[in-house]
Simulated scan of single mutants.
Amino acid sequence: MSDHASNPATDSFVAHRNLLFTVAYEMLGSAADAEDVLQETWLRWAEVDLSTVLDERAYLVRITSRQALNRLRSLKRRKESYVGPWLPEPLLTAPDVAEDVELAESLSTALMLVLETLSPTERAVFVLREVFDVSYDEIAASVDKTPAAVRQIAHRARQHVDARRPRSTVTRSQTKAALESFQRALETGDPQNLLDILAPDVVLLADGGGIKRAAARPILGADKVARYLIGGAGKVKGRYVFVSTVVNGQPALAIHLDGEFDGIMTMRVEDGNITGLYFVRNPEKLTHVEAETQFTLR
């Protein structure tokens, strides 16, 4: 967008920009792709005759959803050739995001990985209906399906997600407590302290994107994860520093090696133990952790 004098189309787009970015990011898991979608949305919105638009928010969400769905289909093909596990791009978030339970859960790495197992259309329908409460008629217009078909897709996607999301609700304070115990275990290098906080069936995913060294496959089980974390750190020449932060609305660790930013680790917690660890080292995915990203559901 240019910096020309304000006009109604610009004002409306700017007013809804955070919402549109949230829609695109939750559908794509990539801030860079979400920004591209917003640019495409703006180009189409600028050509619309506003006198024909009854609900500007709904119209903008529809454009964004269509563009995100198109990109999601091509992104799915791109991920098939990705080196190692693929993780969503971590984004530094403001405290108010973490305080909005519904928004924080929808942005969590754990849920976004579950959304990865849906087809592009299922993901679009689930995000629009379950996260943003868009009507079936509006979703139908966004995904080129009938409202009846959208209801069936939404039901199927909801069942799929419910079967894979955490079994119990975990408060932010419980996640923060688990993170602090995990951080202390890493800092002391004590395998037993690490095993005490890891669930027996914990899974660690490391995303280096073929650029940074990372485990090529998921690491399963507390013993193997502990050996990877402590043994792997022991093989690296240098000093690690772990700094607590808030990423995607959840407590997380920013990891530094010899003063250089090295990656972000988020987690999934159930019943007080860590069941999932997600370590992003790919530098192409770490460009949005210096400044807070603004999200909204409304």
Rank of each mutant, 00 (worst) to 15 (best):
S2N: 11
A5I: 08
S6W: 09
S6C: 07
T10P: 02
T10G: 09
S12M: 07
L20K: 02
T22I: 09
V23T: 06
Y25C: 01
G29P: 02
A32L: 08
D36E: 08
L38T: 00
E47W: 11
E47C: 12
V48Y: 09
D49L: 11
T52G: 14
E56P: 04
R57V: 12
S65Q: 05
Q67R: 13
N70L: 07
S74T: 05
S74W: 05
K76V: 02
R78C: 00
Y82R: 04
P85K: 08
P88I: 02
L91R: 12
A94D: 14
P95E: 01
P95M: 10
E99W: 10
E102D: 13
L103R: 06
A104M: 05
S106H: 10
V127S: 09
V131Y: 06
F132I: 03
A140L: 10
A148M: 08
Q152S: 11
A154G: 03
T169M: 07
T171S: 11
T171G: 14
F182L: 14
Q183E: 15
G189D: 12
Q192G: 04
N193M: 15
L194P: 12
L194R: 04
I197W: 05
V202W: 03
L205E: 06
G210I: 04
A215M: 10
A215V: 11
A216H: 10
A226V: 14
G232Q: 08
F242L: 07
T245A: 14
V246N: 01
N248Q: 14
P251E: 02
A252V: 01
D258I: 10
G263R: 15
M267C: 04
L277T: 00
F279R: 03
E284K: 10
L286M: 11
T293H: 10
T293V: 14
T296Y: 04
